[in-house]
Each structure stands twice: as C-alpha cells, then as structure tokens.
Design a protein around this nucleic acid. Structure first.
Lengths: 207, 207
DNA sequence: CGAGTGGTGGACCGCAAGGTCCACCCCCAC
DNA sequence: GTGGGGGTGGACCTTGCGGTCCACCACTCG
C-alpha cells in the first residue's frame, strides 16, 4: 500500500500516529474521530497522515491491523498456556479483569470495529474476519491441547465449541459495555466454559 | 420528547421518516447516513426532520426506539410460544432464517447500535441497555415456563442462563455478519441451547 | 559538502452535512 | 370565508472535515 516508513524515525512516527488513532477510535468510533483529532493528539501534521496512510480509510485499516494484532497477541499469550480447566478459568479472569480496568467501556476493539464496518467497508470486513479466524484458531489450539491432555473428550466437536466460545466472548463483551457491568461478561464466559465442561473426559470414553 | 405529531397525517409522516431512517442507518450506520439521505428517501424536507426530531440525535433516538420495539416484538412473539425444547429450536431457527434472508448482513440492529453508541451517547446507551433488559426478561420468562413445565430443572440458575443465551445470540450475530456466514449464528445458538439442555429435568414429564 | 530523498509543517480548498429560516399550504373551527 | 395552527418546501448559512499542495528541514550518501 501507500505506506512508506523507510527510516527508523519514519516507522516511529507512523507507529505513534496509529497508536493514538487506535485509542481515539476506540473511544469515539471511526466517524467520531477526525483526522484533525489525530493530528492534535500526536502533534503531527496533515501531510504526515497523508504521507503514511494515503487517506482516512488507510489510517482506519492501519488501526484495524494494529488492534487485531494487539488483541490476538494478548489472547495467544494466555491461550498458549492453557493445559487444563484452571488455565481456562484464568484466561476468562484475564478478560473480565481487562474489562473492569476500563470501567466496562470499549469492549473488544475488534468486535466494535466489526459491528461498525462489516456492512460498510468490504476490505475492513475481510481484515476483521481474518482476525476472528486467527482468534478462533488460537482457541481451537487450546481446546485441542485439552483434548490431547484427556481433559476434553476425544469426540468433542472442537470447531463448534470454538465458535461458541468466541461468540460468548463477543456477546458478553457487548452486553458488558452496554450495561457497564462486567458481570455480564463473566456470566457469558462461565456459560461457555460450563459448556466445555460438558465434554469433560470422565474416562476412556464419553458421557 | 420534542416530537409533535398531533394530526393523523403528522404521525404518518413521522413514522414514514423513522422507518426509512431506521433502514438507512441499519445499512450504512449512524454517521454514514446523512439527513439529506433520509430526506431523499422519504421525499420529505429538512424542516420536517427538524420539526419532528429537533436534530439528528433526536432522529437517532427515535430510530433506536423503533428498532428496539420491532426486535422485541418479534422476539416476544416467538418466545411467548415456548413450552418445550422444540419451540426453543423453532425460535433459534427463526433467527437463523432471518439472518439468511438478509444475506447475513446487518445483524441485530440493537447490537449494532449498541456497539456504536454505547461509549458515545449516554442516553442511547441507556435506551439500548433497557432494550437488552427487556429482551432478557422475555427470554427469562420463556425459561421460567420451561421450568414450570418440568422441562428445565428446578434448580437451574435462570438468570445466568438467560444472560448466557442473549450473549450467544449477540456474539453469534456479530460473527455471522462479519463472516457473512449464518452458520456461525447457528453454532452459537446450538451451543446455548445445548447448555440449557444440560439442565434438562430428567423426570417422566418431558417432551 | 552538495544533492537527493524521506520526513514535516501548515496554509488552503471544496464540499457535504447539520442546522436555520421563512413563506406557503391545507385543514378545520368558528 | 377567514384566521390560526399543524404541516411542508426548499433556499440558505456555517462549519467541520477530508483532502491537496508546496515550501522547508534533516539525514545520508556519494
């Protein structure tokens, strides 16, 4: 794309802009954030935005990329540790805590962007969908590990469980941010984990 | 609020505007829809928008109200029928079908608006939250009926199950619209219903 | 040390979008 | 039929915002 950033300095500036833009967009939404807001927040100039991102859509794409990477990195870090039920609970606690830290505002950046952009900008929808796919893959891997550890039953439909879990996360996050009550995320997550426990491997074979 | 509509004609006009605005906003989002777009779609004039809604935010509020009422009416109609597992499945099928009919676009109007407005406009957030509450109440009532019918166990935590179910709906809808695949909603819903079935009341009285 | 390229500053443009205003119409009551 | 109020039409104003342009800076490399 039209995204130079050859120099070390250039990359730093670009990063600074993307970070600030991501934060602003997270708080006020895409159309609630003007290029001038971004400019002011980063003490940069219009020409820099143009230089690095081409246009506003380019900036939005960069923000999407950044947010997806950030969320997925955090998720992967926690999910890669999952070996048993306790780790799964810890993963859930992490998300609930994260939500509480920001007073149940914002929710999931990916989810919020997806809700706003999926029907509006096809390229964004694709990028966001890919992020969800990657996320699903990370969850799927964790569940696969549980199965290998004989924690989950061998015949559990991991794909379906994965989708269900991700849906619970996104739905819980949305309810939490709308009600400003992290308890709703907690409940949704507990439900998803309970659903996984249904497939608890009690013995050589199924329930 | 600042919404006259004294005459029959007046109410009709107002309704026509709200309906069209709701559709446009559903397709393009709040900030993707200009007052001029609404004006054009309803062959009305600027002064009418001003007359009936005061300003754009007023129109948005009216749209929120309208969409919430529409969704909740449809939900209540289906949920009020629920007496057993079969009805619950039918309810799920209804939602999946609805999503498929619009090619997995749009998702839930309430959810989409909530994602976009919860952190931006407190009044909207409150209205949307109330809608979710009402929705939850409708689900809760249906589950209560199942329990009374001895389909659900008497000791099931209906409140938690209700929240979990609503989260599954919203999350499933979001994933479906992002991936343009209604299967994701289906899976999320199946997961939620499976979770309800865990609390199946195993006594002679079933079906 | 000069030229070239990446990087930066900020004035400026054009337009679209929200909002304002006022003249007019139509229906009804009296 | 006349006056008044709800309802309507649309020109017009203002501004916020995305986008453009060009001059200048700074580092690197020949």
């Amino acid at each position: 794309m039209a995204a130079p950033a050859i120099t070390e300095q250039g990359r730093a500036t670009r990063m600074r802009i993307v970070r600030a833009a991501a934060e602003l967009i997270g708080e006020r939404g895409v159309s609630g954030t003007s290029l001038d807001d971004v400019r002011a927040a980063t003490s940069s100039s219009k020409s820099q935005l143009y230089h690095y991102f081409g246009d506003k859509q380019g900036l939005v794409r960069a923000v999407i990329e950044y947010q997806c990477a950030a969320v997925l990195a955090a998720q992967a870090a926690a999910l890669d540790e999952v070996q048993d039920w306790r780790d799964l609970d810890a993963w859930g606690d992490m998300m609930v805590t994260a939500v509480e830290q920001q007073a149940a505002r914002g929710g999931c950046p990916i989810g919020t962007l997806a809700a706003a952009l999926a029907d509006v900008d096809e390229a964004s929808r694709l990028a966001l969908n890919e992020a969800f796919q990657t996320w699903r893959a990370a969850i799927g891997e964790a569940l696969g590990r549980l199965r290998d550890n004989r924690v989950l039953a061998a015949d559990a439909d991991l794909d379906a469980l994965t989708t269900m879990t991700l849906a619970a996360i996104q739905g819980g996050l949305l309810l939490a941010k709308t009600s400003r009550d992290s308890g709703q995320l907690r409940t949704a997550l507990d439900g998803a984990i309970a659903q996984l426990r249904v497939h608890y491997a009690r013995d050589p074979h199924r329930r």
